[in-house]
Write a protein that binds this DNA or RNA. Structure first.
Lengths: 121, 121
DNA sequence: AATGATATTGATAATCATTATCATTTTATG
DNA sequence: CATAAAATGATAATGATTATCAATATCATT
């Protein structure tokens, strides 16, 4: 499951920021590398589990992907204007892992989002 | 748009932690207060914009709601059987507050959920 | 009470991202 | 070359969420 992955990653790179699977699909088509929708999804999923892309969710639930140059991090979002700051979270990771261990859980993932009001708002 | 809202909130309260709109809908039915699905969605949306409930997204994108004011703890949820463990999170709170401070944010709230596989699964 | 204006509800259909299916094509390997 | 295994992509299925719209409840005013 990897002939398409590089092309998908390249497209995501060109997209610049966050892009949905559907957008990547359209972009690849326009760039002369038409690829099946299912394949785009598969590639993005793999990239997500490999931690080569970040995944966040729009308000309507659609997944957005972005190349993840900086490793795992979280977001601090202004509830008024939507401004988003990336936040490093190694402390949270450690905490999550120890909690999981103490309760006999494996393959732990976590969701951490911070909300608040930014200076301007 | 408010006759149903109290009943929805009460149901969410009884649910204990996070619950999806679909779950709330089923619960209300079982508790003898059958309510239209659309109405449940409307009530939860309003509660979300009023900040009386928190919203997070499961890995598959489904929205989960929880009363905001309930004492602060987090959940470790088994993605297979649904078993849920309540988790204390003062470490996370401190981290969240300092992150917010460093970025000039105020009135910070946070959403932290852990997912994994429990021992049995 | 009766009227009418307005808001709420809920059954149902429509939307749309995501996943599953599966036949076909490609790649790897002996 | 031949055969097995993996990858692809067209298409259908799934499922949460949203839109529609007629029916019902609410409420102020007469």
């Amino acid at each position: 499951m990897s002939k398409s992955l590089p092309a998908v990653i390249t497209t995501l790179e060109r997209a610049g920021g966050f892009a949905s699977a559907q957008e990547v699909f359209q972009l690849m088509r326009k760039q002369g590398k038409p690829t099946g929708l299912a394949t785009v999804y598969r590639a993005l999923q793999k990239a997500a589990t490999d931690n080569t892309v970040d995944v966040i969710r729009k308000d309507d639930g659609e997944a957005l992907y972005r190349l993840c140059a900086t490793g795992h991090h979280h977001h601090l979002v202004c509830t008024s204007c939507g401004k988003t700051v990336e936040v490093e979270g190694s402390a949270v990771e450690k905490w999550a892992n120890s909690v999981a261990k103490n309760n006999g859980f494996k393959k732990v993932s976590h969701v951490v989002e911070l909300f608040g009001l930014c200076q301007k708002c």
